[in-house]
């Protein structure tokens, strides 16, 4: 009996608290920049694809919903030939973003991905690639990597010495 009265009383009190629900979809949810939603592939400052097709995101994915194939352009720059995320399997854990060594794959504050047809939740590279650097502006993997992939020559990267002259015997 006391329990019932107490419940009714508490419910009554809630009439005077601030509302947490919003009139979605008329009113949009405020999401923080680090909110883990829809996955995108970002671009380098120079406009090239950031993804180098290293397969680490695919390996990190606990539901194995990422599949890709790496390929190379004529300069030796790696990029994905195709990049597929099956969002009907994705659990938005963000492991792929953590695993990505080039900041290419990022989770963004967007969850509005409802579809009537499950097949439409399979996103290909053209659906994932955005024309932005995302959360990490200024980073270009090929500037700090050792290889020459047409972005910088050997020894021209950050923290690199000029290529060794192998004909010299000087110390």
């Amino acid at each position: 009996m006391i329990s019932h009265v107490r419940t009714i009383w508490l419910t009554f009190l809630h009439l005077f608290t601030k509302k947490v629900t919003i009139e979605y979809p008329e009113e949009k949810v405020k999401l923080h920049p680090r909110w883990r939603g829809r996955i995108v592939l970002t671009k380098d400052p120079d406009g090239g694809e950031r993804c180098v097709g290293c397969y680490l995101c695919a390996a990190a994915c606990p539901v194995d919903c990422i599949a890709l194939q790496a390929t190379e352009d004529e300069n030796g720059r790696r990029y994905p030939e195709f990049f597929r995320i099956n969002f009907s399997r994705c659990i938005f854990c963000g492991f792929c973003e953590e695993a990505c060594p080039t900041y290419a794959i990022q989770l963004i504050p967007d969850f509005e991905m409802g579809e009537y047809n499950r097949q439409n939740l399979v996103f290909e590279k053209e659906d994932l690639l955005i024309n932005s650097e995302g959360k990490y502006p200024g980073y270009n993997f090929y500037k700090v990597a050792g290889i020459n992939a047409g972005v910088k020559g050997k020894g021209e990267g950050e923290q690199e010495e000029a290529p060794v002259d192998i004909h010299s015997l000087l110390p």
Partner: peptide, 16 residues
């Protein structure tokens, strides 16, 4: 054991 992409490799053909 770390084979990847099982649920995405053929998803372009059929999501199931």
């Amino acid at each position: 054991h770390r084979y990847s992409g099982r649920t995405a490799m053929l998803a372009n053909l059929n999501v199931s």
